[in-house]
Structure formats: structure tokens, C-alpha cells
Amino acid sequence: MNTEKKAYTLSILVEDIPGVLSQVARLFSRKGYNIESICAGVTTQPGMTRISVVTMGDEKMISQLSAQISKLLPVYTVDVLTGEDSVQRELVLIKVNTADKDARDEIIQIVNVFRASILDLAKDTLTIAMLGTADKTKAILNLLEEFGILEIARTGMVALERGRNNIHAQNKLKEEYNYGKTVL
């Protein structure tokens, strides 16, 4: 089994009930792993929420973690996604210092190159919104650093599998997880 550590995105479909997010998050700390980012949102199905968690780990640890999460009663299903088999994006809001007028033009150029957008323009600040991958976000932050980043806010990574594959697909593993959850 591969023991190299890399970023995994756990896509978790849960029943939308109180405490479900803390139940999921608790498992990460219980197993001693860091959450790099976490975000949750409703889906098209009523009462169903999708939680996307990015964490660093090796294959064995991720499979154990997803096994433990799959065991939780409000969890419908867990998919482990990597950069290769899925599309992943996060939204970043960056407020940059533009006290220097020349800086403002330069920043607008950077924004254009990165296909980001400007949400708010004030006398001495500029707020940028950019949709991107982890690499792209890192690159723009590097470039903007010299102007002075006043603050940033990030949504955390969301991800979907490429092609027709999706989280509802059933497989033997998912059936096995459900065995322990049978309540009738």
C-alpha cells in the first residue's frame, strides 16, 4: 500500500440533521489528522447535505478514515477523490492594499491574467474574487503579496468526480459499510 502523504478530498453525503458536521469533524481529530479545509452545502435532494473535506494523508489512513465516517448513521456515502480523478475548485476573496495608484493598475493586470474578478473597488483597497485550484490560488497570492494583502477568505475546496461517475454509484465496498448500519 502507498504510504506517501498527499492531499485527498473526502466527499461526504449526509443527512441534514443537527450535529452531523461535528460528528464528521470529530473523527479527524480522534484519528489525529488535520482538516485542511471543510465546506458544506445543501444538494438538490431535500434533507441531504454534501460535505467536502480536504486532508493530508496516506492511502491506508484515508481508507480507515472513510471507513469510520461511513459508519456514522447520518452518513449516506463517502467518496475519496484525488486531484487526478476529479475536478476541484475553491473560491478565494482577497483584499489588497492599493494606496499606491500604480499598484492598482498592476493588480488589475494580474487579475485579468488569472481570470479573477474585482468585487469591490475603494479608494485604497481592491477586493478580488478568484475561482481556482490550490496551485492557482498559491500563485496569485504570491504575486499579490508585495502589494500588501489586507485579508483573505477562502471557501475550502469542493470537488466532483470527472465524467459520468458520481457519489450515488453503488459498489461492493459501500454495501459492506452499510451492513454494520442495518437497523432492521
Binding site: 450515488h168 461492493k172 459492506e176 452499510n178 451492513y179 442495518t182 432492521l184
Partner: peptide, 19 residues
């Protein structure tokens, strides 16, 4: 809720057979 679970997509809550 048990009835809701019973109809829940992607979750076989009745005891399945071993593979």
C-alpha cells in the same frame, strides 16, 4: 424516521446477505 431510512437512497437498512 425508521420508515424514512427504509426508503433512503443508497442505504440498505434491512439486513443484506453476505457476498
Amino acid at each position: 424516521r425508521l420508515a424514512v431510512w427504509d426508503k433512503r437512497v443508497g442505504w440498505e437498512i434491512r439486513t443484506p446477505e453476505p457476498n
